[in-house]
Design a protein around this nucleic acid. Structure first.
Lengths: 250, 250
DNA sequence: GTACAACAGTTGTCCGTACAACTTGGAGCT
DNA sequence: AGCTCCAAGTTGTACGGACAACTGTTGTAC
């Protein structure tokens, strides 16, 4: 059966599970690259590629001259797939994801939408509003705008489809990059009704712009979470910087 | 004069400025790796290392078979240094950072602090409370716990020192990795007094654990921002995943 | 015209080598 | 004991080559 996944991925996966299994406790030093290369029967370059992946996930440090050290605490970091899909994320935690599509509206792109989706202003887009639940309780309201091509696929989905992203994947729509902005906003009347909370309630807001492998925007979304239900975690290092802080001009 | 920075960094920097200068507009395709290698007189491997950095910053996509595409919109992403230091970040935006140290207390590590700093419970630590301002207006309250070694350095700083992190750097204390958790909490009495806002006001909370190159924790901090003042931005992709979502158990 | 097939172009993976830069621990000296 | 200094160990950087896998385009056949 053997998979078609590249060698360095297998090595990375193996090391990941070894760390998760506690073979290398927090603060422990990993074997040297040469040693790992020998052990797995691969070249040092391949080992380095695997270790770069672990470092990007914040699992290990690395510095010249010394062996790599396992970083404790970071613990479990979701994969990109789990982050992209609310459903997948929830299921991986043993929670039962639910969703109710409130509205699917064909519309004309506003200036903001046009900018983020890189389409001309006034172009045809689809606006989708959904309420997401964990084990039945509403947790998040999701307002997504899709360009026409993608929106048509979404509009064709049944209203009770739990995971839109998984359905889109089946149609060959891939999400590979996303840019997120996280801040706080008060709930408006609409949020309050959908989330069953008082208007003005502070919500954790995540705005997201996702693109496909070719760099074409495929969604522009604004999600609002009830406080206390989820938190966002980020790891960054001098090696791979992905997090930033921004003035909140809105 | 020439610097001691590695080759691939110069290439990456050059490409970054070229993109920023609009030489490759949003959606444009970068030259092929071979072409860049020829142009810079370096090997393809070095070019790939440079491009990997750009990809990690979310500046370009990359997929097998097709040339790399410049991702628009992501725009300016702060460097790790700017994220680490409130002062540096503020100054890079033309704002005047300020700070007031409210208290520096030697203390015994609580269970939580001990866990995050990887010291025995009850070990000597220093708790520092500061109010941070932008152009005079209070924006954030920062509650940081340092292990004894670092805390002693901080305690010796003048109360009106604007940037603690820059001072620590001068003493050879390096921060290379950080793990962040972002969510929302209501302001307690203390926050309200320091930030001059009503108690119960929702604040954007960032909890942070920073480590040095050896993987030793050097700070554990909880920062609370007034809403509307800052937002956090994150880029992630299937290639480098650093962002995650967490159940908010606290 | 439309669909299919071949082809050139491009990035991903993997190997090998060599040297530079840095850390660590121990030997040896005071 | 404490200090300096050295040597071994380890990661970072850079080169080179080869092939696999995929994309976009071109051109052919129907």
């Amino acid at each position: 059966m053997s998979s078609k996944s590249p060698l360095y991925r297998k090595v990375a996966g193996d090391l990941r599970t070894a760390i998760a299994a506690g073979e290398y406790g927090s603060g422990a030093r990993l074997p040297a690259e040469d040693e790992l290369a020998r052990r797995y029967g691969v070249s040092r370059g391949t080992v380095r590629q695997a270790l770069a992946a672990l470092r990007a996930d914040g699992l290990v440090t690395s510095r010249r001259g010394a062996r790599r050290v396992v970083l404790g605490g970071a613990a479990r970091l979701q994969s990109f797939a789990e982050l992209r899909s609310f459903s997948r994320w929830a299921r991986s935690l043993g929670e039962e994801p639910g969703g109710r599509t409130v509205a699917v509206d064909p519309a004309r792109a506003t200036e903001e939408e046009a900018h983020h989706l890189q389409v001309p202003q006034g172009a045809r887009v689809f606006r989708v509003r959904r309420v997401r639940t964990l084990s039945g309780a509403p947790v998040m309201v999701e307002r997504t705008t899709y360009p026409e091509r993608i929106g048509e696929l979404v509009a064709a989905l049944p209203v009770d489809a739990v995971s839109h992203s998984e359905q889109l994947e089946l149609h060959g729509v891939l999400f590979t990059d996303a840019h997120h902005t996280i801040d706080v906003v008060p709930a408006d009347r609409d949020d309050a009704g959908l989330l069953n909370c008082p208007a003005g309630q502070a919500l954790l807001r995540e705005r997201r712009r996702s693109t496909d492998p070719a760099g074409t925007p495929v969604e522009w979304s604004e999600d609002r979470y009830l406080p206390g239900t989820v938190a966002f975690t980020v790891h960054n290092s001098t090696a791979t910087s992905a997090l930033g802080r921004r003035l909140g001009e809105d």
